[in-house]
Write a protein that binds this DNA or RNA. Structure first.
Lengths: 189, 189
DNA sequence: GTCTATATGCGGATAGAC
DNA sequence: GTCTATCCGCATATAGAC
């Protein structure tokens, strides 16, 4: 064995996410990643055929981690506060991993519909809003909730709420949605 | 006059936005922009000192245009449907100018608080939610509304609602917020 | 005001030796 | 499996001639 294995696929992925976390998406180049792993850039192509495959793997990991956050946030909270708890968990994830979160939402990195991580996340959201609203479908409510959460954390991350901050916009929004979901179900009966 | 003026600052800006609309942000380079105007890249620096100044000008133009859309959408609609009308106009703008919209929301392109176009937009949103909610502040409601709208159009543009589409998520979300804003004001009295 | 030429830097990816 | 060397492309921006 003249050239013993220095790295594994898992290490490559973990290090990529670490760079993302520490220095952002612009800093994540194959050269930088290799240097950070103590190898040269061409070696990385033994583990991921191109950069976008690596990015997609990072997105999958992010999806799984986000689901963990949200599930943990919902545990041991009663139905009435469930949406708010889930929302806080979502926001917490985006704060902890801002660059990974942005990557997860990029258009060019949409995973195929077969992606387990994406489906699992969406199914959890649907179950959540069904539980709150009593609706049997939940698509519309899920879309509305996800839209609000994504919009809020995106604008917050971009610093668009200015010096005055978001005030209670987060709570106001979620409470309004929660009430609206329940009411909408009454009408649809 | 050995070298007569070929372009104006306004033309540079207009052409930049056109490229953005037609081919996206990645296609907007100083070289491409120059070529599209029939000049060479260095000439552009007579009109904008660097690329980011040009991008900021594009964002300002976008802000003004978005405000026009929203104002037009609200005209001749009664109070009860105001938020939905404004929302549809916001969405319509994002659909018409997706790449300009994305640029407007980029963190690195946040305009200084002195920016007239940004302030005017935010003031209009505040007036809108105050009108609906009766609240005298409106910051929290404005934040919630903006979050929902931005989140929805971002996810829609990124194709994240999948084949099934957003269903009635847009309407459900806005109606819920409208109802919630009014209710919140009752409590705060 | 526009030009040519260039400085300087970045990136992804591959061929082929060891 | 890792390496050196390299190809190829992109970009922003500037100096100085005309």
């Amino acid at each position: 064995m003249p050239t013993p294995t220095k790295i594994t696929q898992k290490q490559v992925l973990t290090r990529a996410i670490a760079i993302l976390d520490e220095r952002g998406a612009d800093a994540l180049s194959m050269r930088e990643l290799a240097k950070s792993l103590g190898v040269k850039a061409p070696s990385l192509y033994r583990y991921y055929p191109d950069k976008i495959s690596l990015e997609r793997a990072a997105v999958e990991t992010g999806n799984r981690l986000l689901l963990e956050y949200v599930k943990a946030g919902c545990r041991r909270t009663e139905k009435s506060g469930m949406l708010l708890a889930a929302g806080h968990a979502y926001r917490k994830f985006a704060k902890a991993k801002p660059h990974l979160y942005s990557l997860m939402m990029e258009k060019r990195l949409i995973l195929p519909p077969t992606s387990e991580s994406g489906k699992a996340l969406w199914e959890f959201v649907l179950a959540l809003v069904r539980n709150v609203s009593g609706d049997t479908d939940g698509t519309a409510c899920g879309v509305a909730l996800w839209s609000f959460l994504h919009g809020f954390v995106s604008l917050e991350q971009a610093g668009r709420f200015g010096a005055s901050g978001s005030r209670d916009g987060f709570t106001v929004g979620i409470e309004a949605l929660a009430a609206g979901f329940a009411a909408a179900n009454v009408h649809s009966k």
